[in-house]
Design a protein around this nucleic acid. Sequence first.
DNA 1: ATGAAAGCGCTAACAG
DNA 2: CTGTTAGCGCTTTCAT
Lengths: 339, 339
Amino acid sequence: MSNVTRKDVAKIAEVSEATVSRVFSNHHSVKAETKERVLKVASQLNYYPNVLAQNFAKRKSGNIGVVLPYIPSANVFSNYFFAEVLQGIGEVTEKNHYNMVLLFQHESNPMDYEQYFLRHEIDACLILGAKHREEEIRNLEKLHKRNLPFCMVNQHFSSQEFSEVDANHEDGSHQVIQHLYEQGCKKIAFLNGPLVFSNSSDRLAGYKKACKEWGLPLLEEFIHYGDYSRTSGYQKTDSILTLDMDAIYCANDRMAIGVMRRLEELEIQPGKDIALVGYDYSDLSRLVTPTLTSVEVPFREMGKHAAEKVLNDIAHSKVEYKQVKLATKLIINESSLLV
Amino acid sequence: MSNVTRKDVAKIAEVSEATVSRVFSNHHSVKAETKERVLKVASQLNYYPNVLAQNFAKRKSGNIGVVLPYIPSANVFSNYFFAEVLQGIGEVTEKNHYNMVLLFQHESNPMDYEQYFLRHEIDACLILGAKHREEEIRNLEKLHKRNLPFCMVNQHFSSQEFSEVDANHEDGSHQVIQHLYEQGCKKIAFLNGPLVFSNSSDRLAGYKKACKEWGLPLLEEFIHYGDYSRTSGYQKTDSILTLDMDAIYCANDRMAIGVMRRLEELEIQPGKDIALVGYDYSDLSRLVTPTLTSVEVPFREMGKHAAEKVLNDIAHSKVEYKQVKLATKLIINESSLLV
DNA sequence: ATGAAAGCGCTAACAG
DNA sequence: CTGTTAGCGCTTTCAT
């Protein structure tokens, strides 16, 4: 590595080092003539400011940490939620010349986010797929108390007042039940995800609320729990089928597709013998046959909002408390249209 | 932010600052007693070494740049190839306390990778989805000449001798044709991807070689080109169907699924009326009905190899020239099993 | 095994 | 508009 520094440019262009920096930092007034001369020398020498030195002097890493659960043997990226949120975050960080640094949280030892700040590894962080549990809350509380910029995505803790960008999953659920009701379904089974995720409990609340509203039976045995994997959908299907019901509403598309596979094996046709609804409106929902009725969630927008929020905090050197809840929308497809 | 520094710890622990650093950098001899005292004080003060200062002093960013094509309106992460490679890279960088920084290459202006090194933003870089074109090669050549560590993934330029981790796509293609031949197919249409990607041309070479080997007709009109998208598969189907053929081999699963959709609309059944084969053995290939026969490519391993290669270069401060080609493997499923 | 000190290449005042 | 200078918190080398 060559290592042309500001000093070299300054010497040849016959200006002070500070002026060289002024030229490269833009928001400083430099005479056009001087600027030109500096830029010319810089380009001749192939000079580029050293980001390491800049970061060090500014005490900013230029990194946004993105916390992801590490799922052994699985791929976070191939999960629609993560893929979309990351894409949204990536678009915003790129535009703002920030790096997105992925931090994998291993189930076994929850990470102390604060340390990343103390080490100056990140300037802010975004938390995806957080679970509602003691240790998590404690770690977030530390950030909160120290006024460090962070934001949760697609999650909220009823007990706390953390900044978050969420979607209205209660309403999403409500839309599903209303639609199924209008399709003539009277007994709707619900395959939910683990309640440690607020979106699961929000969906449950919406399910219950809607059932009451439309006078549908609200039985405990109608509510099942998977782990959001396709396999769990597949596996839970048999016990759901022992119920007297006419529709299955799954908390995500992957589980719905697992259910579809099992129904297929049993020669039960979704969209004909039974109504099936998924959630997320992922690309998968349009890939399967019949296409899946599902709830669209603006994951990418959520990622953007969250990233913009923390970048704003950084720019203003003060964290702003913010809670956003975006709308969800039912997209009707073949799987729930009983013919 | 508090900002407890080494100085604070040194003062209270009554040692020199250098000793504090020695304790935290491990590979330095410090008397057990001293070490203990320092660690105790550090933990009391909640001290963590400042990574920005460390990086600056060491002149290392701790970042591996990963170059990805930016595809507007699409999501790189939801693409099986990128998702898997990134996962592999991520596992290795995480283990080595390195960051993976995503660099999006916009089609309109190819990036000058060298600048990232000159700015000290990255210590090495990995190139995914590179196209074979002048500018790309010129930019890589600059890295090569300056002896900067980089590695291409799933791509190689016949004209150059760059480090790369590739898979044997020629053989993958060959396996497909052999299988179809054994299924009794005599006229195999091939829907390939753009030839700017070496994996496309490798597949083409394998297709041609195998056709010759088994005495199958090798007609230009049997070879079509899509852009690896599902839509392109769907759209190219009709013209492929005008041919007198008994099998369609697609260069990736997404296109194969597009073909499936169109065949479905036309009430042509893959695995019965016609044989269909995909490529990548992505999770999608197992989601569709019938399940897709496809070629497994060890993308995740490729990401790991590439990351390990450059980390090794960094550790040894010298770039090693390396070309790896991993095996591909045909996975037989329903779509190609003519009944 | 430990201390002392010279950088690393910038930013951010402050002075003129 | 431009120059000067004091840090930023480490790593590294040289002494002891």
